[in-house]
Design a protein around this nucleic acid. Structure first.
Length: 287
DNA sequence: AAGAGGCCCTGATAGC
DNA sequence: TGCTATCAGGGCCTCT
């Protein structure tokens, strides 16, 4: 589900709700995610304070008072729900308010605070939780990824030297987290449409002007998506249960057969498969 | 090294 | 109604 903007929306609301609070209890109901929830997960988290909820790329990063870091990836279908408590003194499930948006199946992890519980739900189990021992090790992990579009490292020289000899198409590069971090299948199509670049165009064939457009437009699309609360294709909700709005701004994604939204363009949006991921484009204005 | 493809998993939807 | 096929916001792993 979530690309950088959606994860950022989750981070913002999560930071407001659990920052500074003590984790009273952790229940792992189903350890099976993409990677097994680590065996020490419960003991590392219990009775620790949440210092801060951060984000890198599509990862949520929870800093704990014991210097450990909990890294969360939501995969395709991971969602976090907060359920509020009627009575602060009790830590039993009967003391929670009914939450209509909380799914009944696939709730894998529950993290209890005094006044609420954090529930991780993931039907497809492509998400995962990881414990990292300190922020130095976290940095090492993060450094293996390419820069985020907002980073100063994501600049013309970087793009040019990375792509100049490459046969692979630009759509796949935008999805390649070792090249750039945080872009997924929706925003890759949107960025390329705004940049008037055909997704099949090889890295080595991109002009300098096109590289500059990718730089500018990846920032532009992602920041606008964050501003609009992310995209809710199927069921993305922020922690408070409300939908994002950016899907109303899609120019190509899930618009196959409809008119290109670029003013003065007469094209019709097409859907095609690139490396087994659906890709949307207007081959009239994307050359 | 770079690139292509399979695969992990459940659920929604379409078509017969 | 019920079967089967296809597709979904991600990314790791293996093979060439």
């Amino acid at each position: 589900m979530p690309e950088l903007p959606e994860v950022e929306i989750v981070r913002q609301s999560l930071n407001k709700k659990i920052n500074g609070k003590i984790i009273k209890k952790v229940i792992v109901k189903n350890r099976n995610l993409r990677f097994k929830v680590p065996l020490n997960f419960t003991s590392v988290l219990e009775n620790k304070r949440v210092i801060k909820v951060d984000r890198f790329s599509k990862y949520l990063i929870i800093f704990l008072s014991n210097n450990h870091v909990c890294l969360i990836h939501l995969g395709m279908s991971g969602t976090i729900h907060l359920v509020y408590k009627k009575n602060k003194n009790l830590i039993t499930n009967t003391s929670f308010y009914h939450s209509p948006t909380l799914p009944k199946k696939h709730n894998h992890i529950e993290i209890f605070f005094d006044d609420l519980k954090f529930v991780y739900n993931d039907p497809r189990r492509f998400g995962y939780f990881e414990i990292i021992k300190n922020s130095k090790l976290l940095k090492i992990k993060i450094n293996k990824f390419g820069p985020e579009p907002f980073s100063t490292k994501f600049n013309f020289e970087y793009l040019y030297s990375f792509l100049k000899n490459k046969e692979k198409n630009i759509k796949n590069f935008l999805l390649d987290q070792k090249f750039v971090s945080g872009i997924g299948n929706i925003y890759a199509s949107e960025i390329l449409h705004l940049s008037k670049i055909n997704p099949d165009k090889k890295g080595k064939n991109l002009t300098k002007k096109e590289l500059k457009k990718i730089l500018i437009n990846s920032k532009k699309i992602l920041s606008k998506a964050i501003h609009k609360g992310g995209s809710s294709i199927k069921d993305f909700r922020n922690i408070s249960g409300s939908k994002g709005e950016y899907q109303n701004n899609f120019k190509v994604y899930q618009r196959a057969g409809l008119k290109c939204k670029r003013s003065s363009c007469k094209g019709i949006i097409k859907k095609k498969n690139i490396s087994n991921r659906s890709t949307f484009l207007c081959n009239f204005c994307q050359k």
